[in-house]
C-alpha cells in the first residue's frame, strides 16, 4: 500500500510539473507574439516620425492580433486556474465530461507536438461520479499519452464519456495499433497505482481499437 501511495504522489507531481511546463510555454509563446506585435506598432510610429506615411490599416491589424493573443493567454490562465482548483477537495462529485474537456485543454500542446488530433465526445447528459478529480485527471492524461503512441497512421484519438452501469466510463478510441503492444506493457505500475486509488478498472478492446476506463459511482475512501 505504501508503494502505491508513493507511486501516486510521484506520478501526480510529474503530471503537475509537466502540465505547468506546457502551460507556461504556451503562455510565453502568446506573450512573445504580443511583444513583437506591440514592437512593430512602435516601429511603425518611429518610421512615421521620420516621414513614412502612417499605415493605419496595419496598426489596426496589429491591435487585433494583440487582442487575440490576450484572449488566448486569458484562456490558458483560466485552464490553469480550473486545474489547480481540482485539488480543492480530495473527493468531489464531478461531471466526467467537464473533466475530459479540461484534460484535453491541458494536453493540447502535447498533442500538437506529436501531430495527433484529439477530439472529446460526451453524453448530452452529465456523467457524474464521486472521485478524486486530480488523480482521475492524472490517469486520463497517462492514458492519453499511451493512446497517442498507438494511433497509427490516422493520428487521431477520441475520448468519449458515458454513463456505465452504476458509474461512468471513458473510452479512448482510434487506437489502431493497440494489437501491437506487448502483453503487460500497459497499464504500467503508475496507472495501476492510480486505478487502485480510484477503485477503477482499465481494459483494452483490441477488436474495437479502444481503451476503456471504468469508474464507480463513488470511489471508496
Amino acid at each position: 500500500m505504501r508503494l502505491t501511495h508513493d507511486t501516486v504522489s510521484e506520478t501526480g507531481l510529474e503530471f503537475f510539473a509537466k502540465t505547468c511546463i506546457s502551460i507556461s510555454h504556451e503562455t510565453k509563446n502568446s506573450l512573445a507574439i504580443m511583444k513583437e506585435s506591440a514592437g512593430l506598432v512602435e516601429d511603425i510610429y518611429l518610421m512615421a516620425d521620420k516621414g513614412v506615411p502612417l499605415d493605419t490599416k496595419r496598426i489596426r491589424t496589429l491591435a487585433t492580433r494583440i487582442v487575440e493573443q490576450i484572449r488566448r493567454a486569458d484562456s490558458i490562465v483560466d485552464t490553469l486556474n480550473k486545474f489547480t482548483h481540482s485539488m480543492d477537495e480530495i473527493k468531489q462529485r464531478i461531471d466526467i465530461c467537464n473533466l475530459l474537456a479540461l484534460v484535453a485543454s491541458l494536453s493540447k500542446r502535447l498533442f500538437l507536438l506529436k501531430g495527433v488530433t484529439l477530439t472529446v465526445k460526451t453524453d448530452v447528459k452529465p456523467v457524474k461520479v464521486t472521485t478524486n478529480p486530480f488523480v482521475l485527471q492524472n490517469l486520463v492524461w497517462l492514458c492519453l499519452n499511451f493512446a497517442m503512441d498507438v494511433t497509427g497512421e490516422a493520428k487521431t484519438v477520441s475520448i468519449v464519456a458515458e454513463t456505465w452501469e452504476n458509474g461512468g466510463r471513458i473510452r479512448f478510441t482510434g487506437l489502431k495499433e493497440l494489437s501491437g503492444i506487448s502483453a503487460g506493457s500497459f497499464p504500467t505500475e503508475k496507472e495501476k497505482a492510480l486505478i487502485e486509488v480510484l477503485c477503477a478498472e482499465i481494459t483494452t478492446d483490441v477488436e474495437h481499437e479502444e481503451l476503456l476506463l471504468i469508474l464507480p459511482d463513488e470511489m471508496a475512501t
Binding site: 507574439i33 513583437e36 506585435s37
Partner: peptide, 9 residues
C-alpha cells in the same frame, strides 16, 4: 504570427 512580426521588425 510571431515569426511574421519579428521578420517585419
Amino acid at each position: 504570427k510571431f515569426v511574421n512580426s519579428l521578420a517585419e521588425r
